[in-house]
Write a protein that binds this DNA or RNA. Structure first.
Lengths: 338, 338
DNA sequence: CTGAAAGCGCTTACAG
DNA sequence: CTGAAAGCGCTTACAG
């Protein structure tokens, strides 16, 4: 079993000596095979194959001062947007970059320190951070960092992209169905700008439309908190519609309603967020917001690339990133309450 | 806005010259501050602070021939086991390694090529692959690669860890409830060893216990396939229990049953896998297999570290990794059918 | 078209 | 305790 295969990879010098040329020529072959004369090329080709040579990318990076790598930073344990990352990776590849995802542990300070270190390590040329950061100190000496929260914040007010704008649409839709008193089970307000944005849009819209809110409960994106939020409502609550932070929370809300003997959507309408597959098949299926994760990933990388190149931020895409999907968990408000 | 901050980080030489010492001394300071005499240390300390110096890790790696980095490879778009990765990262950190996650695109061949390239790039010291690979060619010249599928396969028969052993327990449990005819909606058989393992354990157990199977349907881990599998059953099917590949598929199965007018669990029992939060709050809540993702992540990294160090594979942990959870989606078999 | 030389930013024996 | 020198594996002007 224990192969005695050489662990040490071949170097460019070994290739050169086997081929009987200088290492300069081998390097040239690596950059552009056609720059060698055919006879030389064949010799080098043979040596590369024989030794199964691959250039050491660390050495190359050191010399070229380019790693062609970007990092996406997530908080450890954070829900992982697979489709967003796939799209981000692909966009980066098309621009000649490899993407790696780094999961950072600890509190905001520890995470920020790790990101700062990464940004100065010379290992990557740019960082996309989905982990909430608290970067301090000089921005100097480090590669560009695009923060997704900043990102959300910057887009606030830009109707097409602002992460929170669907909240307005959700409430307007529910109001058109006769709902008058709402409850918001927010996301992790403390750590996520998107959660803060949504909450503030919720409150603004309630106010603007002259509706009532029974509260905006802070939460941690967990189903249990959604469940608890419903159980905490008084028996004579006038709430007939709940806007939940995401589908997981929404599922907890639905279950909480059932536990109280309320029917969904007959007695209570519930709106989720994320269009999770499992919510589409739940009973009742969840009304939700489908987010174009691919577009988000693409746009985020494009922003980062622009910063790296020193170009102005790219214009946001035309298409809507968020789309409301109406399913079984929402219905007209019940007569007796509203 | 456009800060004119120097993009180029300070080098060790600049620190040395500001401190009035040799760069050797600065390097020494980086390794062990106490190896300098106090007066010198203060000077270096000051220069490091002033220039906001961080060593270039690429250069360091080149010299030390160590990157202290491991890669975890996932297939692009693949469901992302956040808790597993968090545990894997932490275990690696404790051993002095940073972990990066690389998402690879394309078919099996393209993905394998990318992994092979990574394994020879000198950028990482080991790779943990959760993407199904088809590595060919010599194993030589590349860093250790632990494949999660191989991993599952190796553990097959090792009751405590084998990924598929809960299937046996599930069937035994359901049989004890009077179920006699089963349906298995498998995972992605083609690409995942774990899916293959579970299917074969399913078939073995059915056989061993003298039960009946209406089939083991290949699937892609999607709810839609679970739904379709149920709709495809004949009206007079004797199936009273379904073992689904995961909670998402199970949710599709439940919904499919409802669409046919069957009650869950009264007419049909459904078992999922993964203990997803959303399935805990679904109605009916899903019976499922809770997987200790943290332990999986830890063990996988430990295996990789052992290979890197040339040590024998570590002994698997004592505790069970999988635990059955019985919820509302399973019940005794209906009288009229079984 | 090819080679000799310099250098990317570090670390590590080796002297002193 | 500190410094001069060599070298990690590449690429890139510069000559020829």
């Amino acid at each position: 079993m224990a192969e005695s295969a050489p662990r040490r990879p071949a170097t460019i010098h070994e290739v050169a000596s086997l081929a009987g040329v200088s290492h300069t020529t081998v390097s040239r072959y690596l950059q552009d095979k056609d720059s060698l004369k055919p006879k030389t090329r064949v010799k080098v080709e043979f040596a590369v194959k024989t030794l199964d040579y691959r250039p050491n990318l660390v050495a190359r990076s050191m010399r070229t001062r380019h790693t062609n790598r970007l990092a996406i930073v997530l908080a450890s344990g954070m829900h992982f947007p697979g489709r967003l990352l796939a799209a981000a990776s692909q966009t980066a590849h098309e621009a000649g970059y490899q993407v790696e995802i780094v999961s950072v542990e600890g509190g905001s300070a520890a995470r920020s320190a790790r990101v700062d270190e990464l940004a100065r390590s010379g290992q990557v040329e740019g960082i996309l951070a989905f982990s909430p950061l608290a970067l301090k100190g000089k921005k100097t000496n480090r590669v560009p960092i695009v923060e997704s929260s900043t990102y959300d914040d910057n887009l606030h007010g830009l109707a097409e992209l602002a992460d929170a704008s669907p909240v307005r649409e959700i409430i307007e839709h529910l109001a058109s169905l006769g709902h008058r008193t709402f409850l918001h089970v927010s996301g992790d307000i403390e750590n996520f700008a998107s959660a803060r944005n949504r909450k503030s849009v919720y409150l603004e819209t309630i106010e603007r439309l002259g509706l009532r809110s029974a509260g905006a409960i802070d939460c941690d994106w967990s189903a249990q908190r959604g469940y608890d939020a419903i159980l905490a409502l008084p028996d004579d609550t006038e709430v007939t519609a709940v806007v939940a932070a995401n589908d997981v929370v929404a599922m907890g809300v639905v279950r909480g309603a059932l536990a109280r003997g309320w029917k969904v959507p007959d007695d209570l309408s519930v709106f989720g967020w994320d269009d999770e597959e499992i919510g589409r098949f739940a009973t009742p299926s969840l009304s939700t917001v489908a987010v174009d994760r691919e577009a988000q990933g693409r746009v985020a990388i494009q922003r980062l690339l622009a910063e790296i190149r020193g170009e102005p931020a790219p214009t946001p895409p035309e298409q809507k990133i968020n789309r409301l999907i109406f399913r079984e968990s929402t219905a007209p408000a019940p007569r007796q309450r509203g």
